[in-house]
Amino acid sequence: MAVSRLTYVRRRLGRAVLVVVAVVVLGFFLIRIPPGDMVDVIVGEAGGADLEFVEMMRSHFGLDRSLWEQFLIYIRNVLVLDLGFSYQQQSPVLKIIIDRMPITALIAAIVMVFGVGLGMLFGAIAATYVNRWPDTLVSGFALLFYATPNFWLGLMLVLLFSIYVQWLPPFGIRTLGMQQTALSGAIDLARHLVLPVIALGTHYVAIFARITRGAMLEVASMDFVKTARAKGLSRLQVIRRHILRNALLPLTTYAGLQAGNLIGGTVLVETVFAIPGLGRLTYESIVTRDYLLLLGILIVTSVLVIIVNLITDIIYTFIEPRVELT
């Protein structure tokens, strides 16, 4: 049944809030998986602590109370945005995460633009020359990059462009010891991001090329395209104005769905290129067994993904007014 846009947005929002609540509840149970309680883990990793401190932490987390009371304490903490304290990094979990977020957001945004842009271009070429050599070439490369692990691709790019020909820096986000103005700093950052973006982006170029190709071929057989052709529009005009524009729609939904995937990709690529972002933080929290931080990252990234999906859902209703809202 069709509803108004306002009702639709409100419903989506309600559902998103519900999903966030579910993520938080999931977190409460996940933190119970490691053997021993949270304080054992923290103290163990910190190399031991005096008994008084241990008792203090137990009561801070409410571990001396019933499961239900612990749950309420946990929810109360999350509501005031307290995701716990990282004893390894000596800082509140949420603050560490927020500090590391900008560079990851930048990489994710560039990769998305790069992936959607080039993916559409190659997908459109493949669909235009379907079953001829450009299509075979594009589809072949899409399959190949789909099967290539991004962390390995990153290492091979470093081998080629940083070690063998030394064109681009192999790791980090800025050249150490370099006097930087705003402009030279930006250029330096850009040079550092070229390889990570390629390592992560090729996968998305492959995905979006396949989706664009498929969507365009589906649209191409529809009646309005035949009409456009019959009224004498050139091939290029038909492709650009009628086929590609209509094939864009499924692409927006897919782009939203890839958000979660993209965050996973940054974990690997930031680890390879030693980029001090959220992904590298995830790796560090695994290596140092910083469980609260790791859980905090899961909760924060999940909320981000939920928000991105909510936004794409809403954008979708604007670019496709015909879609039936439910």
Partner: peptide
């Protein structure tokens, strides 16, 4: 099902495997 599909899957599996050992 949708809930599990929307979560960042690699981060979720990292949490699961790190916590389970």
């Amino acid at each position: 099902t949708e809930f599990f599909q929307i979560l960042p899957s690699l981060v979720l599996i990292l949490v699961l495997v790190a916590f389970m050992g």
